[in-house]
């Protein structure tokens, strides 16, 4: 038996909106300690990893480990039934054929229930090695989204260069070439800070199209954390306060 209740249902709505354009069918791993999900996009260029801790739920019960195969596209349709200030409860029995989702608004006395049919997915589970990232950039999530959108109109590929003084996003295309360079900015307004932790410079190229999809998650956190290591995938990380973390891994473009 699995049951989890989230008072701030909006967070779950945002999480589903943040991943629905990247992954299609996912296995949701339920355990007594929390909920996790790992899935690749259809072209195997990006990997989404979500971890939610049981502590972040108003009520959480999972007697055993369970795997719930879910079509994210269908889950997104069901989540549309939720108002932004609904409380959301997820329920599934052992060997369940569906996931019960309940939206409650205690103020308006409105309750919505939906049994989402589960699917069987034989997805390969990848092991993500613990990596010591030699460059970690913490940047305002709105600002990073804006930079990616603007650069995408100039090129499909962005080269990210880090060193102790700045992080640089450069593009080159038939329009011309240029770069956005962000230095360390410890402005008193916390959410405007750009923090660089660089022990080793990194220079890699990535497809901006994926960064734009990842940035859908910027509604979850005012900061985006970029973790880079030469020859390793980029990690774009969004911390979900009091609940967990949503990570996107993007394979770099490499010389053939």
């Amino acid at each position: 038996m699995f049951e989890a209740k989230l008072t701030e249902g909006l967070i779950l709505k945002k999480i589903v909106e943040s991943i629905k354009d990247i992954v299609t069918d996912v296995n949701i791993d339920i355990s007594p300690s929390g909920i996790s999900l790992q899935a690749m996009d259809s072209s195997h260029v990006a990997l989404v990893s979500l971890n939610l801790s049981m502590d972040g739920f108003e009520h959480y019960r999972a007697d055993t480990n369970m795997v719930l195969g879910v079509s994210i596209a269908n889950l997104a349709k069901v989540m549309k039934l939720a108002d932004n200030n609904d409380q959301i409860t997820l329920q599934a029995d052992q060997e369940a054929t569906h996931l019960k989702i309940i939206f409650e608004n205690p103020k308006t006395e409105r309750t919505t229930e939906f049994n989402l049919n589960l699917i069987t997915i034989d997805s390969e589970h990848l092991a993500i090695p613990e990596t010591e990232y030699s460059s970690v950039v913490t940047i305002n999530s709105g600002e990073f989204s804006k930079i990616c959108k603007e650069l995408f109109s100039l090129s499909e590929t962005v080269q990210i260069t880090t060193n102790t003084d700045y992080v640089q996003f450069s593009v080159e295309g038939e329009v011309g070439s240029g770069q956005v360079r962000l230095g360390h900015n410890d402005s008193e307004k916390k959410e405007d800070q750009t923090i660089l932790e660089v022990s080793e410079s990194v220079q890699q190229q990535f497809a901006i199209r994926y960064l734009n999809m990842f940035n859908k998650a910027s509604t979850l956190s005012s900061f985006t954390r970029l973790c880079l290591h030469q020859e390793q995938p980029l990690v774009v990380e969004f911390k979900i306060d009091n609940l967990g973390v949503l990570k996107y891994f993007l394979a770099p473009k490499i010389s053939d």
Partner: peptide, 14 residues
């Protein structure tokens, strides 16, 4: 020209 790598190249099947 740089080619898009496959993410599975970096992560291994347990």
């Amino acid at each position: 020209l740089k080619l898009q790598a496959d993410i599975r190249k970096f992560f291994f099947k347990p």
